[in-house]
Design a binder for these strands. Structure first.
Length: 437
RNA sequence: CGGAGUGUGGCUCAGUCUGGUAGAGCACCGCGUUCGGGACGCGGGGGUCGCAGGUUCGAAUCCUGCCACUCCGACCA
């Protein structure tokens, strides 16, 4: 992409509405535009990041055996009356009436819809387990939206729903999602800690929140340090027994403020105790027959008798992750994108557009990076060097390849790694090798 | 939903107390000098001062009502 033909409206100053750093940086980098409280338009740069996160989430869901569907944003109130949640949900649900005076709602989640789909087709235990997911916009009319896209009213969520014949099978589905989540966050370049969450009315131990650690996180969290260094399991035998992998992580102490147990935390060796700020970026739970019973999602068992399925649901805040990654990865100059989600892989900065020799080197570098699949952004704009450096630092592109008259005169370019600030002056071919390595 | 605050060009803000021809910086347009970490000079364009009433000879400024947005608290991917 050539910057001169792109749309990347950066701001020198943060709009005063934005208080948290990720919100300020997203606005300054021209990623989003606020349209109303908690509702954002995604500008080209922000959309690129959002799509990359979405794709990683998708790939990890697929790998864990979940099946993608796309459910509508608008749902029928009648379905929610079946589950009993239409009245329960309260003012957070955005209710709409169509021209036929039919009650609709903008879905805050999709248990009802997926259960309706499931029960229409699946009748036998032989067809289980099944896990359907969708990546779709949700709307929750929060009393107080804030923190930019981290707490919006409209947000992009990946929600998965598992269907199993009994609780033991449901636990296996839960474990698959547990591992898939760890893998997903690891690919996004995040340190994530699974923490015991409030299981709600169902009870049991099958509810976890996934928290990333960031100094500016909204809640206080407590955990055993080993959890952070443990890393993600990666590809596993998804049909095998995942319980040991899950237990390895759930046996160590980890809790958010609400679930915190001071006595249990005190039992953790002192040098392993970590108290930090965190941001919730995922939540998984098992809810048993909560929806299958009232909505009659039943399958026949081996004995020929119908029984309600055991369900679980698994959410990742995709749009929230955009902000959360920034909270976890930025400096005074701006955003530092992990390579996996960066809007562009490399910025080729032409310091002197119009200078034939400089243009030629910049163009050569640009074409080579396209060929190498590095998705480069060529800054061919007519701005002063300082402004270019500042803007590219701000938007957080992982590599910078700087082509200027001085370097061109002695056959070199400069490359800079955004995360470390480390710079090297090299001949172009070597510079390209470093970047594409 | 309780409490607090803010609405003035795209962005940051001054002006409001004490009514009297709407300002600055950044951004934008033109010309020139510049050009390796957000340049400088000269010239220029752009604002129903959130909206609606009211008071007044005269309202960004005073009064009333409404709306929007932000922050703190209780709840959430």
């Amino acid at each position: 992409m050539r910057l001169s033909r792109y749309f990347m409206p950066t701001l020198r100053e943060a709009p005063s509405d934005a208080q948290v750093v990720s919100h300020q940086l997203m606005l300054r980098a021209g990623m989003i535009r606020q349209e109303a409280a908690g509702i954002y338009a995604w500008l080209p740069l922000g959309l690129r990041v959002l799509k990359k996160i979405e794709q990683i989430v998708r790939e990890e869901m697929d790998r864990a055996g979940a099946i993608e569907v796309l459910m509508p944003t608008l749902q029928l109130a009648d379905l929610w009356r079946e589950s009993g949640r239409y009245e329960d949900y309260g003012d957070e649900m955005l209710r709409i009436t169509d021209r036929h005076k039919r009650d609709l709602l903008y879905g805050p989640t999709a248990e009802e819809v997926i259960t309706e789909i499931f029960r229409a087709y699946v009748k036998s235990y032989k067809d289980l387990p099944k896990n359907f997911y969708n990546i779709q916009w949700k709307f929750r009319d929060e009393r107080r939206p804030r923190f930019g896209v981290m707490r919006g009213r409209e947000f992009l969520m990946k929600d998965a729903y598992s269907f199993d014949v009994d609780e033991a099978a449901a636990r296996r589905s839960y474990n698959r999602m547990f591992i898939a989540y760890l893998n997903t966050y690891a690919r996004l370049g995040l340190n994530v800690v699974p923490m015991k969450a409030d299981p709600g009315p169902i009870g049991g131990d099958l509810s976890h929140e996934f928290i990333i650690l960031a100094d500016t996180g909204e809640s206080q969290v407590f955990c055993h340090k080993d959890l952070i260094e443990m890393g993600a399991p990666g590809d596993v035998d998804w049909d095998g027994d995942l319980q040991p992998l899950v237990e390895q992580r759930t046996n160590l102490y980890a809790a958010t403020e609400e679930m915190h147990d001071e006595a249990a935390f005190a039992a953790v060796p002192e040098d392993k105790r970590l108290s930090a700020r965190g941001i919730e970026v995922g939540h998984i739970f098992y809810f048993g027959e909560k929806y299958s019973k009232p909505m009659k999602a039943e399958v026949a068992g081996p004995d020929g008798q119908n029984r309600p399925i055991h369900g679980g649901s698994y959410g990742v805040g995709v749009s929230r992750l955009t902000g959360a990654i920034i909270e976890a990865s930025h400096d005074e100059a701006g955003i530092i994108w992990p390579d996996a989600v960066a809007p562009f892989g490399v910025a080729v900065i032409n310091l002197r557009p119009g200078d034939a020799a400089v243009d030629e080197v910049a163009e050569t570098a640009y074409q080579a990076l396209i060929a190498a699949g590095k998705d480069p952004l060529l800054d061919d704009s007519d701005q002063r060097p300082g402004a270019k450096f500042a803007a590219i630092d701000l938007v957080g592109i992982p590599w910078q390849l700087v082509v200027g008259p001085k370097g061109v005169a002695d056959g070199t370019v400069e490359i800079k790694r955004r995360a470390t600030g480390e710079k090297q002056t090299l001949p172009l071919e070597q510079a390209l090798k470093v970047i594409t390595a």
